[in-house]
Design a protein around this nucleic acid. Sequence first.
RNA 1: GCCGACGUAGCUCAGCUGGUAGAGCACUUCACUCGUAAUGAAGGGGUCCGGGGUUCGAGUCCCCGCGUCGGCUCCA
Length: 683
Amino acid sequence: MSITVHLPDGTALELAQGATGADAAAAIGAGLARAAIAVAVQRDGSEPQVVDLARPLESGVRIAILTAKSGPQALEVIRHDAAHVLATAMCELYPGVKLAIGPPIAEGFYYDFDLPEGVRLSDDDLPAIEERMRAHIAAAERFERSELSVSAARERFAAEGQDYKVELIDDIVRSAPAQAPVQTVSLYTNGPFTDLCRGPHAPDTSAIKAFRLQSVAGAYWRGDSKRPMLTRVYGTAFFSQKELEEHQARLEAARARDHRRLGRDLDLFLFSELSPGSPFWTPAGMTIFNELTSAWRALNSARGYHEVRTPILYDAELWRQSGHWEKYRENMYFTEVEGRQMGLKPMNCPAHIQIYKSARRSYRDLPIRYSEAGLVHRHEPSGVLHGLLRVRHITQDDAHIFCSEDQVQEEVRACLQFAFEIYELFDFDVRLELSTRPTQRIGSEEMWDRAEAALAGALDAQGLAYERNEGDGAFYGPKIDLHMEDAIGRSWQLGTIQLDYSMPERFDLRYNGADNAEHVPVMIHRALLGSFERFIGILLEHFAGELPLWLAPVQALIAPVSDPAAAYAQRVAERLRAGGVRCELDLRAESLGRKIRDAELRKIPYILVVGPKEAAASTVSARVRRRRKGAPPGEVEHHEQQTELDELCAELERERYPQSIRALRTPGGRLPTEALEQKLDIL
RNA sequence: GCCGACGUAGCUCAGCUGGUAGAGCACUUCACUCGUAAUGAAGGGGUCCGGGGUUCGAGUCCCCGCGUCGGCUCCA
């Protein structure tokens, strides 16, 4: 008897009955057999499944032997191996430790432990644990798989006091489909350690060629804040020391992009203990904020939005009516004024509703689109604050669209298109998520059905790919969330488009239809940047502080070679300022090298060196920042060019705004804030 | 909010086992007048996060707050 399996290149391989992945690898070549980590097995029409090399193969399956070169699938195996080795070391070092779970994750692995009474783990303990792990890896302990009946496994772990494992077994049994009840569970043993585990694992622990424990953190059992806090140890593992070092270098590079560091180094914003979670914007940071706001304003206006501005403090009655009191109170700030309870707005919608309600509306008025750079306050728990990315007061690039039900799809479509247009300014790639009804919600099931269907319809109608994120909607309606991936592969949530049939009901919104009957409008809540604060944080990290010219607080620095060139430098500066360029003059009694160094550290896009030569020829020696070819945004190099002053002005004029914004400049030739800046300059 | 770590000059950090604070950068002044990433010298600057406690004596040890960082839960 023999079996046949198919290899990735299409050839068929005949093996003895009962042959394993390891046998298959050996049949292909001795080198492969040595390098093999696991095997990916695919039955007809099903997803490939990675299994141990020691598992017997079924006839007819397609197989792929995984080695160090097989990418994420193989990495996942050895990272899972490493998690087991970590647990092995922990059991030896901390007798009585209870084990929770230890899976591989995108960048490595972790294991959650419930440490014995009185034991605390800190980063300082990691080297000792690593050392213990190294001993187990050096011993090349085999991963032996065994199966135990559910009751035997339960008994075994209960006897060892491994309560979490018992709970896991009960869960495995409970979540199994009725037609395929779970009879047995698998266990893996390496050296002295046995763990409940589905596998797969490498043949032995020596497959872990390079690893490192990274940090200690707290994590709730099962991610539930009502359950015990466990101690989580994070680590990562690779097939070579070199890859591990490269990984460390990537982490280091990510730290250099940290917007909190950039905010301080570039003097853009700061935080104070006196108002946790609230940025103070410096003049330079405010320049970015304002440029972004005015671009946003121009784009909104071009798309039929009307800007409004509403109060931040409201009678609590409003929040009772909106449902925020019921569902969102924990996140709100309240105060008492002359015996009246008042609350700071955490969202702008009820405010915009007041404007909608201020007049009788006709179907002819719809859709009504109100936009507001609205300041909202949300009491975020202290532990979640994070620079600009998670703050307690937020300036949302908010808008609310009031429309009729049959306008919903078109309005959502337009919002999506608007979003793409904005993201294009920064070359962002977006990913879409549709979030559906959460457990904490208001409104009828029927309403949720309609709202979810309308959003899905708008996405489908445009053939947009999206993921469904069940249960993650806002309390008043489902939403489409827009995520971007930044220069170094991290994902951030930007905008959100939320459909709401609920607020209009609660606030008794009406419009007169063509039939002269009263109808209830639908509300669309949308923010595309998310918030100006978070968006600027994301931009800083994405561009590593090397902001596009139009956002750069200082666009050009003029560096006279020495004092005699100062007069010409002045003239250059005046000329550029007249053209609306934000420039600075470095008249310090410092060397040229010093001025250039300081300007580059400030990430100023244009450094204009002027001396007697340039003065004589009406030119500048421009040191221009350029993105390095093939490098992600934020990795820049500088090159020098001699340019006529006129030509430079023309170039800056061309580069000053992205095409789509430039087209929207007001007849005066400038965006509103610029015009204002000019006036102030004259004063 | 929860777990852990941390909090010393504007920034980055040193300060061993308790004996009343230091460096580099930044800042100020002076000299240098400089050609594409740091000229030199001098000087000023500290409630050692806050409040209690232990001690003859606390930046250092203990407790309680606050903040920050890494996670978890949550989230634009």
